[in-house]
Nucleic acid binder design. Structure first.
Lengths: 203, 203
DNA sequence: CCGTATATGTTACTACCATTAACATCAATG
DNA sequence: CATTGATGTTAATGGTAGTAACATATACGG
């Protein structure tokens, strides 16, 4: 090996490099239609090298999917932390950050919720501290406490709020929302829908 | 051509045959990982024949996606028709049928809501009478009327209810609901969530 | 009824991909 | 220092998407 070349026979961190390459390809192309060979090229290795780290293309995608879930949890957690515990604002912040995160990168959404992501990921992978659901759970619990709302199951409520946010995000991403609701302000819709739902809990 | 053979040089209805073949392949495999060649084989034509009817694989998938949307609208419309206009039950029936439809065939869901379906389909394709949203719109409008709830935008409310149902369906399909909400009865969750939301509208 | 244009098939071909097998290199361990 | 296992490489197989050139049927004008 020449002194001037930085290239080594072994990459050194190929597994992570592939995940990053893959994430970049998805982000740049806006779709999941990249090939294993593309990822290998971007990481600067031969076509066969990735198979030392991932059984097949789906396994690589699954790793990227986990990264995306981790990122979502982190972003949502940070947004929540900016609002006081027990406030409705905290719940709203979680919702907004969720919607913005998945909307900004629709292809990551596919990855996370299509047949490659959530459906096949090990449940434990959701348990990392970063998983947004636990932030939501805490925000809901403290809100119900603060508002002295009783007789309402926390997990049940959290999942329902999650559904609302998730669904609105999905519809928004389809790009067809204006077709069904021409002058919708989707951020405001999310806020008002959340408020309406929480108000319904009190009655 | 022999008398006993029914095979003709021209298929006769290849376009539709391909859509059906495609739908069957998706249903059987539970994924979108079929190839154009698979569809051609199933339809009994050569590998190149499909390209006379569909620009590429995505175009074929989009056609199947439209079929799925059509089916969803039909099923939901039928379910709604069984409940009296103006009743909450009618809204609940629309939600349940929606959730069951998409849940039963998760891969169709991917097709409809992934980057192939809604995001690229011509908006007019949603306008067919069968589109479930219009059933929902009507059900919501008549319900608000019957309950004398005023100051509430019908489209806005319909989209929010749709979001709720859609989101819960998506989470359910991920198979991870038990992980977050161990003893959830998802059908009951949908009903109670809808009720809570509608109750919130009154306050 | 006939001839021809067009639609819709076919086969043959290119370029590329996923995945595996056999071989090469390196890094660590005893 | 020798060996071993991890991690690369090249080469090969079998398959796919999509195109081009060719074949056949169908429909429509004369």
């Amino acid at each position: 090996m020449s002194v001037s070349s930085l290239k080594t026979y072994h990459h050194g961190d190929l597994r992570n490099a592939l995940i990053v390459a893959c994430a970049e390809l998805i982000e740049e192309s806006g779709s999941l239609n990249f090939t294993m060979a593309d990822a290998a090229r971007r990481a600067g290795v031969s076509n066969a090298a990735p198979y030392r780290h991932f059984r097949d293309r789906d396994a690589l995608l699954e790793a990227v999917s986990q990264l995306a879930f981790f990122g979502l949890g982190t972003v949502a957690g940070a947004a929540a932390a900016e609002q006081p515990r027990g406030s409705l604002e905290r719940i709203l912040a979680l919702g907004s950050s969720y919607m913005n995160y998945v909307t900004e990168k629709a292809s990551f959404y596919d990855l996370m919720w299509g047949d490659i992501g959530a459906r096949s990921i090990d449940p434990q992978a959701f348990d990392r501290k970063a998983s947004g659901f636990f932030h939501l759970l805490d925000a809901v619990e403290s809100y119900l406490d603060a508002e002295a709302i009783s007789g309402v199951d926390v997990r049940d409520t959290a999942v329902k709020l999650w559904s609302l946010v998730h669904g609105l995000s999905a519809i928004r991403m389809s790009g067809k929302l204006p077709h069904f609701h021409p002058d919708a302000d989707v951020d405001e819709m999310l806020r008002s829908a959340t408020r309406t739902f929480m108000a319904g809990l009190k009655s």
